[in-house]
Structures are given as structure tokens and as C-alpha cells.
């Protein structure tokens, strides 16, 4: 569904962020992209919707060659790719509903969006999705009044409002606590499966990637150094991606998954209770 061929990005500073990356993501596949900081993960997904202009190579979504498009056609194509950000990237001073409706900006004209006159069907869909993620009681709250997990849910809903075929997800859990991280990842996967969307998820938490993705691609210094199923992750693979380190504790083993998951969760729950008092 998404095909990337020979994608290269060299920044004006001379840094080579992506070096001849080729990759295909079939329809409905959730793919995790892991790698150390600066490996080019963010650049890669931003080259897909051309928030970052690639230096060379092709990106093809369905039948459309994204790297060939002019301005207007590019905007049309961007509607088909929902993006979810690390720091949520909500428009802080607008309400939850306005943020969600901003996902429809590619579909409505300027003046309609100026006067917030979105089609009733859009608003209905917004309510349905907000209800689905448990935020329908907060529609008129300002985005900066929300907690991290709530904001990320608004970010997810905004991406889904575009009615995308592909989700580009950039470190969705980097600013969240372990429990919320899992909830958010689960939500993204669920929603992607429900709608049959492909997804590329940048993530640096190897455990989360193993737990939720069906395919893992490892990036190092702008090159793909691993591409396989989560079960194929071994200490050798991690060394190939991240470099030398004792990886034996990082690989997920099913038997201690429960205790591992339960540990931080119990702590965060306790903290929440303390904070609430």
C-alpha cells in the first residue's frame, strides 16, 4: 500500500539522515520503527507526507506518487495520511472539538473553517470518535487543560478525522507514563485494526514495539539494519541497531510480562491516588 524506494535525505547542514531506504508496508499492517536517537526515524515518516522534503527517492501511496505531487495535490494526499505526534502537537489554545475538527481542514474551504462551520456529519463523526476514546464530556475544554494521556487521545482522534488510509505515528508514548503509554498504544492498534489502516509507529521503547507491532524495522544512521517479526528480536539484533550493551533483560519474555507490566502500573496508580488527595 505504501512503497518507499531509495529514499535519501540530506539536510542543508550536510547531515545524511536517510541513506537509500526502501520499504513496503502492506494494507492493514502495523509496523514499528525503532532505532537510536538521530537514526532518522522522524525524518523517515516526515518524508512520507513531505513535511520534510526528501532529497531523492520515491514515496508511493496506493496509486499516488507522493514525491511527484504539486502543492494542491500534495494537500489532497496528506488528507489520506493521519499523523500523531510525540508532544501531541495540539493547538493548545483551541478547544478539544476545534482540535478534532482541524483534522478536516483538508476537506473544508478556508472561510468555513474560519467560521468553524464544519459539515454536521464531521461534527457527528467527531463526537462518535471522542466518545469512543472516552472524551465526549470534554469537547469544550481547552486542549492545554487536558492531561498527557487525554491530549494524546485527542491527537489520535484528530488523525482519524482525516479518514486516513495510513497512520504516521511519531513517538506517541515518549511523554507519557508507562501505564498511559500502554493504553495509548493499545488504542492506536485497536483503531487501526477496526478501520484496516496501515501504520508506521516510531518508538524507542523496544518492549512496547514488541508487544504491539506485527513487524519491526530497525534503523541505524539512516539505514535499515533489521526488518522482521517481533519474535526475531534477539540481543544480536539489538546490538546491530543500537550498539553494544547488555540486552538480555530488554527482550520480552512472556512469562515475566505480567509482573513487568504490573510493576510500574501499580506504582503509577499509587502515585495517582496520592496526587488526587
Amino acid at each position: 500500500m505504501l512503497a518507499i524506494e531509495g529514499l535519501t535525505k540530506r539536510y542543508p547542514t550536510g547531515d545524511l539522515a536517510l541513506d537509500n531506504v526502501s520499504l513496503t508496508v502492506p494494507k492493514g499492517q502495523v509496523m514499528a520503527l525503532i532505532g537510536p536517537s538521530g537514526a532518522g526515524k522522524s525524518t523517515l515518516i516526515r518524508c512520507v507526507n513531505r513535511l520534510v522534503e526528501p532529497t531523492s527517492g520515491r514515496v508511493v501511496l496506493g496509486e499516488t506518487e507522493i514525491t511527484q505531487l504539486g502543492d494542491l495535490a500534495l494537500r489532497r494526499a496528506r488528507r489520506r495520511m493521519g499523523m500523531i505526534f510525540q508532544e501531541y502537537a495540539l493547538i493548545e489554545r483551541l478547544t478539544v472539538m476545534e482540535n478534532v475538527l482541524s483534522g478536516r481542514l483538508g476537506y473544508v474551504g478556508f472561510w468555513r473553517s474560519w467560521f468553524r462551520r464544519f459539515p454536521l456529519a464531521d461534527i457527528e463523526e467527531a463526537f462518535r470518535l471522542l466518545h469512543r476514546v472516552g472524551l465526549d464530556h470534554m469537547v469544550d475544554k481547552r486542549a492545554d487543560a487536558l492531561s498527557g494521556g487525554q491530549r494524546q487521545r485527542v491527537g489520535i482522534v484528530r488523525a482519524l478525522m482525516q479518514n486516513p488510509e495510513l497512520l504516521l505515528v511519531d513517538e506517541p508514548t515518549a511523554s507519557l507514563d508507562p501505564k498511559t503509554s500502554r493504553q495509548i498504544m493499545r488504542l492506536i492498534i485497536e483503531l487501526a485494526k477496526e478501520r484496516g489502516l496501515s501504520a508506521i509507529i516510531n518508538i524507542h521503547d523496544v518492549l512496547l514495539a514488541q508487544q504491539f507491532a506485527e513487524r519491526i524495522v530497525g534503523l541505524r544512521a539512516g539505514r535499515i539494519v533489521f526488518d522482521g517479526a517481533p519474535e526475531e528480536m534477539t540481543p544480536e539484533v539489538l546490538t546491530r541497531i543500537y550498539g553494544e550493551e547488555d540486552w538480555s533483560k530488554t527482550i520480552r519474555r512472556d512469562e515475566d510480562e505480567e509482573s513487568k507490566d504490573g510493576g510500574p502500573t501499580a506504582v503509577t496508580d499509587a502515585l495517582k491516588v496520592v496526587a488526587a488527595q
Binding site: T95, M97, F115, R116, L120, I123, E124, F127, V139, D140
Partner: peptide, 8 residues
């Protein structure tokens, strides 16, 4: 809900 909603 959508019918009841007004832009802030």
C-alpha cells in the same frame, strides 16, 4: 450532540 454543539 453534534446538533447541539456550537463553535466556542
Amino acid at each position: 450532540a453534534a446538533r447541539a454543539w456550537r463553535p466556542p
